[in-house]
């Protein structure tokens, strides 16, 4: 495959996974939790690096998953002790992130782990770091990791589809039916962390938030069906990857920044034009009116 094809494939995988996970983030009203986790994942990576002195896939994934779980747990813990949820999120993720940055600045040095790289991502370097696979041949490491994570995410969503639905819509009923709401919550937080870290190389810690939230929010304006929202959100993510890449080539600028910006454009088009919940759509069908 060509250099461009690898980049497009990687970016599309980011868009697809983030779009799928993002749908649940929006419906569970945990959009800012994505912001929190994507930041604290940095601490997980740094600690994994300090412990193993390697920057390879599996260590990073485990470190990130643990950091994400720690964030979710601490936010919940503080919240249970009377701190409002948004405030406790703000306290937890900024603190963990600050510790991560300090560790990088004082312990790691710029040679191995670059803060700016982790924050902005550098998708254009991805095709250079390859690994050898049987049959397929050379595959960029980051792309392979993303592919595995994507498959994992799709499998988890399909396997527990009805559990995701009920714990998102009505957690109290779910708990009374004996569905482990807390367990599902932490499983989901793990999914968000792993998705965030797998997307790190490509888009970095902050732009991954755009990939997670914005395509799903746009999809939310087009449909009333969960299945379709999943599909649309994934598609929007891939679309943003393509638009972003070609915009970046055209303007000769950052691919990850352009991808994040492209998700914003898709949302803008949706909020204006969606026939169901867009501004224009509403204006065109005034007869239907707004229910509530």
């Amino acid at each position: 495959m060509s250099y461009t094809a690898w980049i497009l494939l990687t970016a599309s995988l980011v868009g697809l996974t983030c779009g799928l996970v993002g749908t649940l983030l929006i419906l569970r009203r945990m959009a800012m939790m994505a912001d929190a986790i994507s930041h604290t994942v940095l601490l997980g990576i740094v600690i994994a690096f300090l412990a193993t002195r390697s920057l390879h896939g599996i260590h990073m994934l485990v470190g990130a998953a643990l950091a994400g779980l720690l964030t979710a747990f601490l936010v919940q813990w503080l919240h249970a002790r009377g701190v409002r949820e948004d405030a406790s999120m703000g306290v937890v993720f900024t603190t963990l992130f600050a510790i991560g940055v300090i560790l990088i600045a004082t312990q790691v040095g710029n040679a191995h782990l670059d803060v700016e790289h982790a924050l902005m991502g550098e998708i254009i370097f991805i095709p250079f770091n390859v690994t050898q696979l049987p049959v397929v041949g050379e595959v960029p490491l980051a792309t392979l990791t993303l592919l595995i994570v994507t498959i994992l995410v799709i499998a988890l969503i399909l396997l527990f589809y009805k559990e995701w639905k009920i714990t998102s819509f009505d957690p109290a009923l779910a708990a009374s039916l004996g569905i482990p709401v807390g367990l599902m919550h932490y499983l989901f937080m793990t999914m968000v962390s792993v998705t965030a870290v797998a997307s790190f190389d490509a888009v970095g810690a902050i732009m991954v938030v755009a990939m997670l939230i914005t395509p799903a929010a746009a999809a939310y304006l087009w449909t009333d069906q969960l299945r379709i929202m999943f599909v649309l959100s994934g598609l929007f993510g891939v679309l943003a990857a393509f638009i972003g890449y070609y915009t970046a080539v055209w303007l000769d600028t950052s691919v990850s920044g352009s991808m994040a910006f492209a998700t914003g454009l898709i949302f803008l088009v949706s909020i204006l034009l969606s026939p169901k919940y867009g501004l224009l759509g509403k204006r065109l069908r005034p007869a239907q009116g707004e229910v509530k």
Binding site: L27, I166, F169, Y220, Q225, L226
Partner: peptide
């Protein structure tokens, strides 16, 4: 206690009452 903007229809909400009986997977 729930968000009525959730993308689902009436039948689907009623079906949720059966999720406990349907079982995992």
């Amino acid at each position: 206690s729930v968000d009525w903007d959730f993308p689902t229809d009436a039948l689907d909400v009623v079906t949720m009452g059966l999720y406990g009986q349907i079982g995992w997977l």
